[in-house]
Every structure is written in structure tokens, then in C-alpha cells.
Amino acid sequence: MAWNAPVPFASWVMLSGVLFSIGAVGFLIRKDPIIMFMCIELMLNAGNLLFIAAARYLGIMAGQVFVFFVMAVAAAEVAVGLAIIVAIFRTKSTIDVDEMSGMRG
């Protein structure tokens, strides 16, 4: 394969699938909300990557527009999420999710 040959589409799908899986597994095994949130961002961006690759591959630019929507929404989510984390840290002085056990049953 020539050095400048286009990357086949299947590779993009695989790359984004692997990124998504890393994010999902990370979300499930980590205990720190900030790391968990980074994992969510990784999952969202795996979706974005796939959108862009597919838009390029199929020649349908709508996919690239969707990425802007997703990025804008993710930014709004970050704002709310970090505010919640800060509010919890102020009273508990920890944000470990294992400490979030005020409710049982």
C-alpha cells in the first residue's frame, strides 16, 4: 500500500469502536467522577469520529454538521456536570463515587 493511500473505511469504524469501548469500560471501572466524565467524552468523540469518517466516505456532509450539534451539547453537559461535582466537593470534600452511599434499599 502506498504511503499516501486513503485509510480504508473499516479502519475508521474499528478505531471509533475501540475508542467507544475504552470509554465505556473506563466509565464502568473508575471511581472518580471526573475520570468517568472524561470516559463519557471519549465515547461521544468516538461517535463524532465515526460521523466525520462516514460523511467523508459517503460524501454526505450532513454527518459533519451533526458533529457540531454533538460538540455543543457536550459542552453544555460539561458545564452542568462540573458544577454538580463542585457542589458535592464543597460539602463532602470528596467526590469518590463509592462515598455516594447516602441512599440504600
Binding site: 467522577p33 466524565f37 463519557i40 461517535g47 460521523f51
Partner: peptide, 28 residues
């Protein structure tokens, strides 16, 4: 209440990233 907000936020955001990736797969 804050604990509920954090749990809802983390799991809700986790779920919506599934929606984004699902939509991307469908688009692809």
C-alpha cells in the same frame, strides 16, 4: 439531592453517548 444529581448526570450522559454512537453507526 446533590448525590442524586451526580448519579443522574453520570448515567444520563453515559446513556446519551450511546445514542450518539448509535446514530453514528446508523449514519455510517
Amino acid at each position: 439531592s446533590k448525590e442524586a444529581a451526580l448519579k443522574y448526570f453520570l448515567l444520563g450522559a453515559f446513556a446519551s453517548s450511546f445514542l450518539v454512537f448509535g446514530a453514528a453507526l446508523v449514519f455510517a
